[in-house]
């Protein structure tokens, strides 16, 4: 699904050169739930940005779903993000002036679906996160956990193969966090690959596999800690 080889990322200002990633190798297979951990400043966010095609890398090779990313122009990268990747951010990043329906609609419009298809997908994904009845509400009217579930619905609506989550529970209390985590596990069980950046070892422990980044390098690989949670079906509304 995702394969990086000898990848490096250098930030240059006119004075300083910072090596954010060096000789970075990782291979995530389809259907995996990978947690990425590491101390702050280790390069987690850089890795996530590159994985999500939000940033370019300096050298190395990166394949996503078999597509070589190097040399793609901005439009092709946008297209790839839109079709193959779903994002979940720590700060939810919902658009405050749009209601839930319109928020979930944003990536679908960029995809170019017709309005009937968009409606079907929006309703389906909002139903999946248990917020179908709140379509006309605005983000500010929801709790943090609900907002993050809308963000998840938005990420799912385009049926991406890869879900990138950046500290998805970082702004939530533990109750809400648990609900969101359970939702992610459910999505993974349904076949979507998930790459989650977190600094919470407890959350990381729930992933199938943990990757640790220290000083821009992958230091720990293939630590299988899979928990069979696919059978657990707590209703998200229970939060």
């Amino acid at each position: 699904m995702l394969k990086m080889q000898n990848l490096s990322k250098v930030y240059r200002t006119h004075m300083i050169e910072t090596q954010a990633l060096r000789g970075f190798d990782i291979h995530v297979r389809e259907g995996e739930f990978v947690a990425v951990t590491g101390p702050s400043g280790s390069g987690k966010t850089t890795f996530l940005n590159i994985a999500g095609l939000l940033e370019e890398f300096s050298s190395g090779e990166y394949l996503i779903d078999g597509v070589n990313v190097a040399g793609l122009d901005d439009n092709a990268r946008s297209r790839l993000r839109n079709e193959k990747i779903g994002f979940i951010f720590q700060g939810f990043n919902l658009i405050p002036d749009l209601n839930l329906f319109d928020n979930v609609d944003v990536p679908l419009r960029y995809r170019g679906f017709d309005s009937a298809e968009r409606r079907r997908r929006i309703e389906q994904s909002l139903t999946q996160v248990g917020l179908a009845s709140r379509q006309r509400h605005y983000p500010a009217e929801l709790s943090g956990g609900q907002q993050q579930r809308v963000a998840i619905a938005r990420a799912l609506a385009g049926s991406p193969k890869l879900l990138l989550a950046d500290e998805p529970t970082g702004n939530l209390d533990s109750n809400m966090a648990r609900g969101v985590m359970e939702l992610l596990e459910e999505i993974n069980a349904a076949g979507t690959t998930i790459l989650m950046v977190t600094h919470d070892p407890e959350l990381a422990a729930r992933a199938q596999r943990n990757v640790h980044i220290i000083d821009g390098q992958v230091s720990d690989l293939e630590h299988e800690t899979r928990r069979a949670l696919a059978s657990l079906s707590t209703t998200p509304e229970a939060v």
Partner: peptide, 16 residues
Amino acid sequence: RKQIGVRRALGGRRVD
């Protein structure tokens, strides 16, 4: 700016 970044992350092209 943040919102624009999110739109871009969700697949919006520059032209969008």
